[in-house]
Every structure is written in C-alpha cells, then in structure tokens.
Design a binder for these strands. Structure first.
Lengths: 340, 340
DNA sequence: GTGTTTTTCCAAAGCGCTTTGGGTTACGAT
DNA sequence: ATCGTAACCCAAAGCGCTTTGGAAAAACAC
C-alpha cells in the first residue's frame, strides 16, 4: 500500500494525506483523524527511499564500526551502541553502521555524498582527532562521544573522567595510601588521557607529583592486560597499595593477579575501577565487591543519539554539549593500607 | 555532483552514464572508461534514496538489535555484528540495525513495508521461533544464524554445536572421567539445546544416560553465572570431575569457583568450554590454558552477511545453508581424573 | 550497393514521496 | 449581497536515479 493507493482509498489527494500524516496544520482535525486511522489500519508506511529522495534527509544516524579487532572498546562499544540504537529507534530513526578498518574517512565521505545519514556519531575520539576536521569539511553534522582537542566547537557528550579519577585517587590518599598506581586504557584516547590527568592532579595535591612509587601503565582494556599490568606493578618494590583501573575488565585481571601473588584485595591492595555498567560484568559480584566510579555507557549512547537527531533537525551546536558528573561507589575493595 | 550534472559534464546522456557505471553491456569500452574515470575524479556517488526508489532495493541488510539487556549474547553479539558489518561493507551494502525490546515483529514489519532492508539477519534463534513464520509471511528474505525447528526451508549458517559438545564430552570420557557436568547457555536457544544433545549423546554412548552424577544447569552466559553454577555443581557429592561450559565467560567464572573451593583446574577438575573467539577473552591465557571447542563467531557473521546478500540477489535458498564443523583445541585445563 | 544485424547511445517514463503555489468553500464583517 | 479572511484541500512539479523502447550509426552479409 503506497500513498497514492491510500489517498485513492480515502478519496483525498496525496497532498492532504501526506500532510495529515506529517502533522501539518492545514488539515481539518476530522480529516486527519480519518487519515491516521486508515493508515494505521492498512499498515501504511512511507517508502523510505522515496522519502529520502523527496526530503533529502534519510531519517538515519550513521556510525562507523571499527571491525579490526585491535580496537579496545569491543564490549563497551556494544553497550554504547545499544543506547544509541534505543533512542534512535524511539524517535523513528534508523541506525546505519558502516564497517571500517583503519581510517574512517571513506565511510564519512560516503555518508556525506550519498546522504545515507543525517548525522553521524563519533566514538572513541583520540586526543587529536583528524575526523573532526574532516566531518566539518564535509558539512556532515556529527556528535562526539567524548572530547578532543580542537579549536572548533562541536557537539559532544562526555563524562567527567578527570574528576572521577581525581576523586577516586583522593579517596585512596585520604585513607592513607601513598603508593597509587594507574592501570589505564590506551592513552591515545581522550578518556584515558583525562583519567590520567585526574590521577595526577590528586597525587600532585598530596605532594606526590611524579612520585616514582606511583607508576602507571596503559593498553587495551582486556582482562589479560589487567592481569599483566597489575602483576608487573605489584612485583615492584615498594609495591603500590592502591590500584586505579580504567575498566572493570582490567580490574578483573588485577584481582586475578593479586590473588596469584598471594595477596588479598581490600586488605593488601585497594582497587578502584571505572564501571561502564556492562551487563555481563557486575563489579559488586566480585569478592570483595569492587569500588567503582560509575557511569553507564549506555546512557551516553542514548544521549548521543538524542543530540545527533536534534543536530540533524536544526538545534545549534552550542546547545548540544554535555559533560556528566560521575558517581563514586564505595565498596569492599578499598580500605586503609596495612600499616607498614 | 549528481547524475545529471555528471552526464552534462561528459556530454553524454544520463542513461549512458548510469549504464556505464552499473556495468551494463551496451556501452562502448572507451566510453565506459571515460565515465568511470570522471566519476572517480569528481567523487560522484549515487544518492542512496534515489537509487532505492528507482530500483526498489535498498542495498542494505537489516538486523534487529535486542536492546533489553537480558539478552545473553551481548559480548558475542558485537563480534557477530562485526563480521556481518565487515562483509556487508565489503560488498557495498549498508547495515541497518533496529532496536527492539521484547518482540521483533514490529521491526520486521517495518523493514518489509518501508523496504529499508533487502534481507534481514536473524540471530539467536529459539528452538521454536515465531520469527521464521513471520518473515516468511512478510516475504522478506532472511538468513538465520543458527537453526530452529520448522518445516519450511530457510537460509542459515550454523556450527555443529551438537558434534562439538559430543566430541568434548567424549574426550573427557576417554580420559576416564565419569562425572561430567554441563554449564549451558539459555536452553530456549537452539545452540544451547544442541550442545546439551551432544553432551547427552556422548554420555549415553558411555552408558551414562541420565546419570544423576552428570548434572547440568543453564542460564545467561555471564562470568557470574559461571561462578554460581560451577560452585553449586562442585559442592555436590560426588562432585563432577569434568565441566563443559557453553562459553569462555562461563568458564571464567568456573575457574574462579574452582579456585575458591581450593581445587585446581586440570588436576581436580577438567574444564572445556566453547570459544567464540571473542577478542577480549582469550582462553589460552588462562592458567591453565583452557581447552576449547573453537569457532569464531565473527566468521559466522561474515558468512551470514554473504548469504543474505546472495539471497537478496536471487540465489535460491537451498544453496544457502551451511553447518560448519568445530575444532577441539586441547590444552592444559583437561587431564585424566585423579584416581579415587 | 542493399538489406540485416549489432553496437552504441538516448529521450522519456516512472519509482513514491514532499512541497509549492494556488483554488474552493465557509464564515463573519461590511 | 459583497468582500475579506481563514480553513481546508488539491494539481503538479520535482527529488536523482534506473530502465524501457527505440533510433542512429557502424558493421556485416550477400
């Protein structure tokens, strides 16, 4: 059933039916009701291609999907994507994912030229990210999940990574810890860089700036790396008594390392991690329950999608920036350091 | 730059340019070369909406994205999706994901009516899956990742789950194990049901059909469940000496449980898991390295996408079914049971 | 050289929708 | 009765592409 058939069926013109369905003012309430009802009844849905062609807009959000597996975020990405998809769907938008290996330039070029997406979502921004300039140049609206260094204004939603890790580190310091190590994600990405800054700020405030007993390491956020990093850090002398992990997956590995070394989480080593609220990794089920800075990454996806749609429909960029504060959830993995 | 401009620029008709670009026979090689070159140079890309409208096909694959988090497959799904996206992209297809909560009917209806996707991908089929009938009724081509019970023929790619778990169980039996437990995924899903069948078959062949000392349990494939299930199983008397896990994540939890009970993997308890080859969970890095039945779920995604595109372009269904054998990779988590 | 086929190209007709730029009709005001 | 103004509706023009059904030109057969 298409528009022509539907309007013939109703004895109205295509124009009127179209306008009734799209909420224009100049159609009588009674007519509109009839139209909407009939459309509902026969299950009319506008052909997406035709609508795209006519309006020039695709009612779709685009996102590049890095399929090469070296990307650190796999388990986080899906959760983020779930959020994006949820609100996109809710607002009648499709979500078009395009695979990329290496550079995403080609995908964005295609989005822009074929008008396949009205706005694109940029995730995992690097500290200096060429994509921003590219998208600006292409005139393709975009919103960034995270932040980056650029003079240009850009729509984004982020969490206060720096504040979160400053806070987490301060908690350990206040408890008396003096040797606090950071197990970070890839520091080419802004979120990791920010967390490092937060950690450093707290240390500096405690007079521990660049203290060699407060080491750090970074890399892909896998369980395996968490184990390796934690193990390496804890085998130093003196060993750190506090561990800040950039993801629960890393903390997972850290727990394993701590156990393997005959130590006990919460007694010998305090651990705090950032929790993106992945459904299959629940920090409170660990033993002892893991203290976290918590911010559901899915929520981030939802807000990014919302911003992207608003951007595509004309909301100015400066109204589309948000940086969410992060909660610190105190649990059993943290305690005062053993005296001595 | 659109077709009209491009053809004006070349001094040719739109028809000729279009046909040249789309590989029709009736355009002189020299002309074609000129056209292709010019298109390349000016970066011409056909408007996707226009093409959809004209051809009736969208050059897109559709997939429903279950955003309610009770879905077991989260980490598996992304990897599968990566495979789908990769080959879709390679072949010039977009991938449209549509969120669903609960039933996916509405999404498929929409795909069908708006012609947003030329074919859809069905993942995580239940043993009896209403979606098959629905899609058949809608006339929307689809390919299933996995199998289901239905009299209708349908395109699918699956792995030999039954054979894999039969094989794994037989290995343990051959080593002398007599109490082998199964920690399975949600048995409403076909893959889990098939694995159970394989386990049962091997047990039956060893004369252990329905042996009460060979218990099983099932549920979402999380680390947490792996821990709970393994712990419960191992606290029975007599305790099983062999554990078959439906995912590495479950095995992960099982390892933790085994350790917590003061037991040792490979010595007191042998563990085998199915490995979907998730990049952030590497079974060989566990201690001891985990024996697995291995089949990269990403490869599955790639093949599903390939089938879906072939289906959309006219390949008959009966040429689009495949069930891949599964390798058993023998590692240190398996040994003969302690005598006694 | 004529007739026939093949090769190469093109004009024009859609695909199904939105939107512009009027028309009608109804109604209150003059 | 007449005019002006809303309120409601419509015909027709596109959006950018593909595809049908030729036509013109070139190649071939005799």
């Amino acid at each position: 059933m298409n528009l022509r058939e539907l309007s013939a069926h109703l004895g109205l013109s295509q124009t009127t039916v179209s306008r009734a369905l799209n909420g224009y003012a100049d159609v009588a309430p009674a007519t509109r009701r009839k139209v909407v009802e009939a459309a509902e009844r026969v299950g009319y849905r506008p052909n997406s291609g035709a609508r795209r062609l006519a309006t020039g807009r695709s009612q779709a959000l685009g996102i590049a999907f890095p399929v090469d597996r070296n990307l650190l975020l796999d388990p986080h990405f899906i959760e983020f994507l779930a959020g994006v998809a949820a609100t996109a769907g809710e607002k009648g938008y499709d979500l078009t994912v395009s695979p990329t290996t290496g550079t995403e330039d080609e995908v964005y070029r295609r989005f822009a030229r074929t008008r396949t997406a009205d706005a694109v979502i940029l995730s995992g921004p690097a500290v200096e990210d060429r994509r921003i300039a590219l998208l600006n140049g292409l005139g393709l609206p975009f919103v960034v999940h995270g932040r980056t260094q650029t003079p240009l204004p850009y729509a984004h939603v982020d969490i206060d990574n720096r504040g979160a890790f400053r806070q987490a580190c301060r908690l350990l310091l206040d408890l008396g810890h003096r040797r606090i190590a950071l197990i970070n994600g890839d520091e080419g990405q802004t979120f990791a860089r920010d967390r490092r800054s937060g950690w450093q700020e707290a240390l500096a405030q405690a007079g521990l700036a660049d203290d060699p007993d407060c080491p750090s390491c970074c890399g892909a956020m896998t369980e395996e790396n968490g184990y390796r990093f934690a193990r390496a850090l804890l085998e130093r002398t003196p060993a750190p008594t506090g561990l800040l992990c950039s993801s629960v997956l890393l903390a997972f590995g850290a727990y394993r390392a701590i156990r393997d070394l005959g130590l006990t989480v919460g007694r010998d080593v305090s651990v705090i991690a950032h929790d993106d609220d992945l459904p299959f990794l629940r920090p409170h089920t660990l033993d002892p329950p893991l203290t976290v800075t918590r911010s559901p990454i899915r929520k981030g996806g939802e807000q990014v999608a919302d911003f992207a749609i608003r951007l595509a429909t004309g909301t100015p960029i400066d109204q589309l920036t948000d940086v969410k504060p992060v909660d610190l959830v105190y649990r059993g993995s943290v305690a005062a350091p053993a005296s001595g």
